[in-house]
Design a protein around this nucleic acid. Structure first.
Length: 889
RNA sequence: GGGACGUUAGCUCAGUUGGUUAGAGCGCCGUGUUCACACCGCGGAGGUCGGAGGUUCGAAUCCUCUACGUCCCACCA
């Protein structure tokens, strides 16, 4: 009946677990064995698909990355142990402004498409002195090459961290959003949307970043509070002595004023509607109109409309058919303008031009300072009363729109851009969002809010260089003018394509930029245009239908909540537009890491800790423990204590593993009451944890497993059966006693085996280490990470379902005896001569089957049971304990 | 202005559909060592669950109001 023992010699095992050494060794083993490889031959039902966030490698590395990526890995590892063929790729989001900005700053260069390409150009970061000079200009192709080179270095830093951390990524699936395949895929996406009529190009005022000099989408806008001031400026009414005062925070836009507006019910201004106002300094007649959007409470209740101060200006400009007097250029400076012309009418052109000469060429800030001075000149008044500026500017704080990575407020600049129609699809977008399970569920509100509040279509063109080219050309008419109505979109077979280098179908290079020929689109995509395709990048949409069917929609999308409006939103939009599908079934929203002052950790605030440091100090398992302790969507304050707790758990596992696997006695079937009771509890634990994990509540599973491990396994069960497990060692191996001894050893091993597997998703290194000693050979699963997750069913036949209650009584009885020892200030190992164990009669009876184990485990020679009905069910008290004298040392 | 989430022990957090005396770890106090583990064991103290009202036999849990914090959206003259 007994099996041959496979044990370890504890002396041959390192006394302490060395995380750094184990991390390196196991990483190599896992990679060598292809442990985390996706198997494309498996069916969809057998597969679990993770739509991994591709980090921006040129961004900063901080503890938040470790936090959220570990949470995903824990889920992936659980699924793998459940027998799923896990698809877990990693990509790098290289496209976009962060990379460009980093390259520009690092090497002090700028991209200039007109600069010729230099073969083999290599640049070193310049000295401080060289940095004072204007940046060096490089060609677009050189710039892209430099960006790609730098991101490759950055990627390695992330990759090293992921590997150290033990993320079970299939590295054979690695991709970069700038690589050929992803560029081709993004362009294929464009082509599909183009063919379906979702795209259009238009020349219109667009939110514009004057530093990056590119259009920006609504999703990339961040509001910032900043100090400003109301400037009260007097306007005149044409053909009248009358004047009125408007309040503006942007006086520098006065020369771009195209109208004046007040609320239709505002009694103060009733007489003015329909008349013309005359601006001070520039003496431009502009219409006065009424609009519900004007707030009588704000400023003076009447305001100037400029091209363009804000979104409402754009709206009024459209609705009222106002003139376009665009002064702020793409570079953020005021353009030249001549007053007294059709474009810039003026009743007193000479004066207007004299004033404007003080402003032209200045940036917004400089122009504002300059015009405040001009407005103090009485000669500039349109009414002739006094200086146009009434009193001092009144300081206030207002919110201003910025590009989220920008340094100066956004301007509205009329430019030609590509848009994707989304406003007319809000309902469909909302429905798709509701079909997805959000974890936590309330995060759906964020998505709903954003979708309902969408005000402009998706602007997907960017006037940048490092990204995916928009795959179109425009025919040139006989005058060399672009025909924007009939763009030529690249054919799928050509992709990836660069319209600045390649030619459209049916044309040849000699026709480029020639009248009657074509010209290439120079813009690139919004970085989200590619990022929104991560599920399709993994599934090889469009190029491998079989694979796509197996991997799309994905099972889970892990991500942070601040990018619900971008990454999640656009991904849902793409899945809707391309295939009328959802992109994934579940979204797992991770929380933020807060510093001890409960502020969000970020590099810019200087409080982001370098994530490699805790790994080195505490080990990857301990750091993973910290991440896995936090529930989805919950922001967590960083507390170093929790690393220590993880470290302690890892140590305890290691020591318990050593002890259990060192037991020499042959195993027998698990039959003793205490052993069966223990296994019954273990079975319940495994079932509960599986339910938690299935709901992505890994933190609950960990908490339950950890509590069980300490309280039930190491503190109680292990202590109680220690003597019985050693009977064989003491030579007492015959018959019934051998069977009881073997039962203990078998249950100890089963407990360790199951608990190791339950901890494996969170602590992959220490569990693999212990697993490798005996279980790897014994179970036929060389790695614990491919061993099956313990199910209730797999343990069911081992223990009777009703035995577990005697285990609770054993726990309580041992605790009562321990308390007596603590009260007497003797060690836990001290032998008890005799004591009275009090409990109510029912409880004493329930304890009876495990009495011998409790006596032996608590080292009690003799106890007198005492029925005391004053005690509640399950409660024990140890009384009148007398202890054996400690032998002389 | 609209909305979401949070507020439980000194700290970090649990608390399932309302149900005995509200839990864990850390920290603190006390105590015990060498036979898995001092990278340790055992025991103890510590909370009127942000506040007020309501529903209920019974509320940390449900409802209303409110305070504070964080975030999202809107506003941007």
């Amino acid at each position: 009946m007994s099996r041959p023992p496979r044990t370890i010699d504890p002396d041959s095992i390192a006394k302490h677990f060395d995380p750094a050494e184990a991390q390196q060794r196991w990483h190599e083993t896992w990679e060598r064995d292809g442990l985390y490889r996706y198997d494309p031959s498996k069916s969809r039902e057998e597969t679990f698909v993770v739509d991994t966030p591709p980090p921006t490698a040129s961004g900063e590395l901080h503890v938040g990355h470790v936090f959220s990526y570990t949470q995903t890995d824990v889920v992936a590892r659980y699924q793998r142990m459940c027998g799923k063929n896990v698809f877990y790729p990693m990509g790098w989001d290289d496209n976009g402004l962060p990379t460009e900005r980093r390259v520009q700053n690092h090497l002090h260069i700028r991209c200039d498409p007109h600069t010729p390409y230099e073969e083999g150009l290599e640049l070193e970061p310049p000295s401080g002195k060289q940095r004072k000079k204007p940046p060096r200009l490089v060609s677009r192709q050189n710039f892209i090459e430099i960006c790609a080179g730098l991101t490759a270095v950055d990627e390695q830093v992330f990759k090293d961290l992921w590997q150290k951390l033990g993320l079970s990524i299939d590295w054979s699936l690695e991709y970069a959003t700038i690589d050929d395949r992803c560029r081709g895929l993004a362009q294929r996406s464009f082509r599909d949307l183009f063919d379906k009529g979702h795209l259009y190009t238009t020349y219109a005022p667009t939110m514009w970043d004057v530093d990056f000099q590119t259009a920006v989408a609504q999703a990339e806008v961040a509001d910032r509070e900043e100090p400003g001031a109301y400037h009260n400026v007097e306007f005149a009414v044409e053909d009248s002595e009358q004047g009125f005062v408007i309040a503006t925070t942007r006086p520098e836009l006065l020369p771009a004023c195209v109208g004046v507006c007040a609320h239709p019910d505002d009694e103060r201004y009733q007489g003015l509607f329909g008349k013309n106002a005359v601006t001070p300094l520039f003496f431009a007649p502009v219409p006065i109109f009424a609009s519900e959007l004007a707030d009588p409470e704000k400023g003076t209740g009447i305001l100037m409309v400029c091209t363009f101060g804000d979104a409402t200006d754009v709206l009024w400009w459209r609705e009222q058919g106002l003139a376009l007097r665009q002064l702020v250029g793409r570079n953020g400076r005021l353009a030249e303008a001549e007053f007294g012309t059709d474009d810039f009418p003026s009743l007193r052109p000479e004066d207007a031009n004299r004033y404007f000469a003080e402003l032209a060429g200045k940036n917004v800030k400089q122009a504002r300072r300059a015009i405040v001075e001009l407005l103090q000149d009485a000669a500039g008044s349109a009414t002739g009363h006094s200086a146009p500026l009434q009193g001092e500017p009144e300081p206030m704080v207002h919110t201003v729109r910025y590009y989220e990575n920008g340094d100066r407020p956004l301007e509205y600049v009329p430019t030609r851009q590509w848009f994707c129609r989304l406003l007319d699809k809000k309902d469909a977008l909302l429905r798709k969002g509701e079909q997805i399970q959000w974890h936590p569920a309330h995060m759906l509100n964020r998505y709903r809010d954003w979708t309902e509040g969408l005000a402009i279509d998706w602007c997907l063109s960017r006037q940048r260089y490092f990204g995916v080219p928009i795959p179109v050309w425009y025919p040139l008419d006989s005058n060399g003018e672009r025909d924007y109505e009939h763009p030529i979109c690249a054919e799928i077979e050509q992709m990836p394509v660069d319209p600045m280098i390649h030619t459209p179908p049916g044309h040849d290079e000699s026709q480029r930029d020639q009248a009657g020929g074509f010209t290439g689109e120079a813009d690139i995509f919004d970085t989200w245009f590619t990022s929104s395709l991560t599920p399709q990048i993994g599934s090889h949409w469009g190029t491998d239908d079989d694979r796509h069917a197996k991997l799309f929609p994905a099972d889970v999308r892990p991500q942070a909540h601040e990018i619900i409006r971008t990454w999640a939103f656009y991904t849902i939009a793409k899945a809707l537009l391309h295939e009328d599908s959802i992109p994934w079934h579940h979204v797992l929203i991770s929380g933020w890491i807060l510093d001890p002052n409960r502020k969000k950790m970020s590099k810019s605030k200087g409080n982001a800790l370098v994530p490699t440091e805790p790994i080195e100090r505490f080990g990857a398992d301990a750091v993973r423990y910290w991440a896995a302790s936090a529930r989805l969507g919950v922001d967590t304050a960083l507390d170093e204590q929790i690393y220590k707790i993880g470290k302690r758990l890892s140590t305890k596992l290691y020591n318990a593993g050593k002890f259990v696997l060192a037991q020499q006695a042959p195993q027998h079937p698990i039959r003793c009451e205490l052993d069966r009771a223990f296994v019954a509890k273990l079975r319940r634990l495994a079932a509960r944890a599986a339910v938690s994990f299935d709901e992505f509540n890994y933190a609950q599973a960990l908490q339950d497993t950890e509590a069980f491990f300490w309280t039930h396994f190491t503190d109680t069960y292990l202590e109680l059966v220690k003597p019985r497990a050693r009977w064989a060692v003491d030579g007492d191996t015959a018959g019934e006693r051998a069977a009881q001894c073997g039962s203990a050893v078998a249950a100890l091993r089963l407990g360790l085996d199951v608990l190791l597997r339950m901890f494996a998703p969170v602590m992959p290194y220490v569990t693999e280490e212990i697993w490798s000693w005996v279980f790897a050979g014994e179970t036929g699963h060389p790695s614990i990470h491919r061993a099956p997750w313990p199910t209730e069913g797999s343990l069911a036949e081992i223990a009777a379902p009703d035995s577990e209650f005697s285990f609770d009584h054993a726990v309580a009885a041992l605790a009562a005896i321990n308390k007596a020892k603590a009260d007497a200030e003797v060690s836990m190992g001290r032998e008890v001569e005799r004591l009275v164990l009090a409990a109510n009669a029912k409880t004493l009876e329930a304890l009876a089957p495990v009495r011998e184990d409790v006596l032996a485990g608590a080292r009690v020679h003799q106890w007198e049971p005492l029925a005391d009905e004053a005690l509640e069910d399950g409660a024990f008290e140890a009384r009148e304990a007398s202890f054996v004298e400690r032998p002389e040392r």
